[in-house]
Design a binder for these strands. Structure first.
Length: 720
DNA sequence: CGGCTCCCTCTTTTT
DNA sequence: GAGGGAGCCG
């Protein structure tokens, strides 16, 4: 392969980045400006031209999807698998380091990774143990507190006493939680990163080893790095190993989990001799779409400043459909899809993506698609390895692998019910707490010392030997049979079979699928070392939750959250739920900083579209069992209106509901979603209107008295 | 101890 | 709306 295949497909700025000298490089890459391409070509350039061994390359991303794509593209460009190269997520790489150096990291060899749900349950138990009332000390908040500290690299001992009682309690919880995890050999997501950082920090010989090994570090989505990830990069680089960081401050959407946009600014300061390259030429979208994105993001104050350009044509206008309710919204989207993929059009379903702010919004779309026989695929949501029955089966396996895994012990000790109830468990927990033992050990002691009544003791003994026997029996089996065996002896299968009906059936099928996941599991000695297959599989399950459901191969409409759409592109994008409170989400709409993050999320959504952007919102949305009347998203106003073409209401509109005319009505200022004040009924929101001129009537949903129709001329409504 | 019902809360995004 | 928890009864 010659240099031209690496450089020819690049523009000047991209080429500058790819061929830059071995110094720190910061690539500020706008959406659709060829970010991944630059990374991939940089790797090829280093290996093929600069003579760097693939063994010396470390490439880090945030999602498994992005890592997989990078690996594939490097392979395609270099026409050979990049052997020895480390390509992975921050969490995956941290995990790899901890597996390789578990002794130095102070972990048991069979340590397991817990996901946020496990962490939550764990915290709940810790709170109970500390006798803190859940109502006053919500486990969610504890989780947030602990993860935020870990993301900043702070251990409980390093938290200075602020004198604040609540803060002191949270530190207590943090300590107790960490002790419980350590005892059980459990590592949460934030802990993976923090421990991997501490490992290198406290073991100079290891740090030196990796600095010798890695000649180049490349980081994707750099704007998403948190404090500890940034510190880890700095530490590993040590000012010697060049870091090639690619990022876009306008696409920073993970502030809520500790990501710091400031890392982009710090980079040029902390990595001396840093070269900055800007990629502002967009190859993805029409000019209309880019203008919309630029118009929107302009409203953010905190920006490095960057404007996307294109040589492309204006393309089609953005469509805005104001639906009557969320079902009408879904109906419109489904019919639009049928129209665009129908005869005479060449759009494939897979080129059509529906984005939404929160996972719960997918359901209505799914129903609309099912109704019309449209195949679809949902990304994210409840993923395979997060399903209850799968986690049950995995918990058995984890307990078999590591008897001290308290989280798994609690999960399955009485599932299916085997006569080990709350009382018995309370005795075991007390014992474990007093002696600082795992539940497994406490159970053993309780039996020896006859702390349990005869019946309970029998049940506990039965459970312990069940796990022990299984451990012996499966030791020599292939992975898939290990999984199958565990499900059978634990009676999980039986349990779910008895549940019967559709639900149980689906669960059994999922368990079957888990067995086949086991037989298809790709054990990579390079990645997993001498880790037993089963343990490697369990780690894989925790780190890669898997897809929601996917009929791989079939031509499907794509449904996903705005967050998971990052890094992807589609010819047609529908951004649904463009309503105040939904998007921007009500939890984030009030605080300026968080609103800016929502806006960046909107920017990400818009810039996913190549040819056609469709925005939809609903005037009424059924949420949490009640109807909500949300005004249109403020983001809609920030997109230059000449780019948008309104689409009329659909057929689901009830008779007399002439919402389409509201915009031109009366003084021209009253719009659906507008807040108004009535001197008798108080405050309310305009739901719709009908008629014109003197006979114009508006429907207003008042906060105190509910929805009312008013004749506009006499209503005396004031806008708020 | 287990299973049932009712009621209550909690609602964002992900490794 | 759904899942989880509390409370009750067998």
């Amino acid at each position: 392969m010659d240099v031209s295949s690496i450089l020819d497909p690049l523009n000047d700025a991209q080429r500058d980045a790819v061929t830059s000298p071995p110094a720190p490089v910061l690539v500020l890459a706008g959406a659709g400006s060829g970010k991944t391409r630059v990374l991939v070509h940089r790797i090829a350039w280093l290996c093929r031209v600069e003579g760097v061994s693939p063994y010396g390359v470390l490439a880090v991303t945030f999602t498994n999807k992005a890592a997989a794509e990078m690996r594939n593209r490097v392979e395609a460009l270099m026409q050979t698998p990049p052997g020895g190269m480390w390509v992975g997520t921050f969490h995956g790489i941290a995990h790899r380091l901890l597996r390789a150096h578990w002794v130095e990291a102070g972990l048991p060899q069979s340590f397991q990774i817990i996901d946020s749900e496990d962490q939550f349950r764990m915290l709940r138990r810790v709170l109970k143990g500390l006798e803190l009332d859940e109502a006053r000390w919500p486990p969610r908040q504890a989780q947030w507190f602990i993860n935020a500290r870990k993301d900043e690299g702070i251990r409980p001992g390093a938290i200075t006493d602020s004198g604040d009682y609540a803060a002191q309690q949270w530190v207590r919880v943090y300590s107790a939680y960490q002790a419980a995890c350590d005892r059980a050999g459990l590592v949460d997501f934030a802990e993976l990163l923090l421990r991997a950082y501490e490992l290198l920090r406290d073991r100079p010989e290891l740090l030196a080893h990796y600095r010798r090994r890695f000649r180049h570090i490349l980081v994707d989505e750099f704007q998403d790095t948190n404090t500890i990830q940034y510190a880890w990069l700095r530490l590993l680089s040590g000012g010697e190993i060049p870091v090639f960081a690619v990022g876009d401050d306008d696409q920073s959407i993970y502030g809520w989990r500790g990501a710091r946009i400031e890392n982009i600014q710090s980079f040029t300061r902390d990595f001396s001799g840093c070269l900055t390259v800007r990629l502002e030429e967009n190859y993805r979208s029409t000019r209309t779409i880019l203008d919309a994105a630029n118009g929107l993001i302009r409203n953010n104050a905190e920006r490095l400043g960057k404007t996307l350009r294109t040589h492309g044509d204006a393309g089609d206008p953005i469509l805005l459909y104001v639906a009557y309710n969320e079902r009408d919204e879904a109906r419109y989207v489904a019919e639009k899809l049928l129209e665009m993929t129908g005869e005479g059009n060449h759009l494939a379903r897979s080129e059509f993506a529906v984005l939404y702010r929160s996972n719960a919004q997918s359901r209505v779309f799914e129903e609309a698609f099912v109704e019309r026989g449209i195949p679809y695929r949902v990304y994210g949501g409840l993923r395979f390895f997060e399903r209850a029955e799968i986690k049950d089966a995995l918990a058995y396996l984890r307990l078999i692998v590591n008897h001290d895994d308290d989280a798994s012990f609690e999960r399955v000790v009485n599932r299916p019910t085997r006569g080990i109830g709350e009382r018995t468990l309370a005795i075991l927990r007390d014992r474990a707490r007093e002696r600082e033992l795992s539940l497994w050990q406490a159970a053993g002691e309780a039996l020896v010392e006859h702390l349990l009544a005869a019946r309970a003791a029998g049940a506990v003994r039965g459970f312990l030997s069940l796990i022990e026997d299984a451990a012996v029996r499966i030791a020599a089996l292939p992975l898939a049979e290990q999984i199958d065996h565990a499900m059978t002896v634990s009676a999980l299968k039986e349990h779910y079979e008895k549940e019967g009906a559709e639900r149980g059936q689906a669960r059994i099928e999922n368990l079957q699928e888990l067995v086949s996941a086991g037989s298809n599991f790709n054990f990579d000695p390079e990645l997993h070392g001498d880790l037993p297959r089963l343990e490697a599989f369990l780690a894989h399950a925790a780190l890669e939750a898997g897809e929601g459901q996917g009929s791989e191969g079939e031509d499907c409409v794509q449904l996903m959250t705005l967050h998971s759409a990052k890094g992807l592109e589609f010819p047609v994008i529908v951004m649904s739920g463009m309503e105040q409170g939904v998007f921007p989400h009500r939890m984030s709409a009030d605080e300026p900083g968080r609103l800016e993050e929502e806006r960046r999320l909107c920017y990400v959504g818009i810039t996913r579209a190549q040819r056609q952007l469709i925005l939809t919102c609903a005037e009424t949305r059924r949420h949490y069992g009640t109807d909500q009347y949300n005004p249109p998203s403020s983001f809609l106003r920030e997109i230059p209106s000449e780019l948008i073409r309104d689409v009329r209401y659909g057929t689901m509109r009830p008779a007399g509901f002439a919402g389409g005319g509201v915009r031109e009505m009366g003084d021209g200022e009253l719009r659906v979603g507008q807040r108004v004040l009535h001197n008798h009924f108080g405050e309310g929101i305009v739901l719709g209107a009908e008629g014109a001129g003197r006979s114009a009537r508006v429907q207003v949903n008042f906060e105190n008295v509910g929805a009312k129709w008013l004749v506009l001329e006499y209503a005396g409504l004031q806008q708020i």
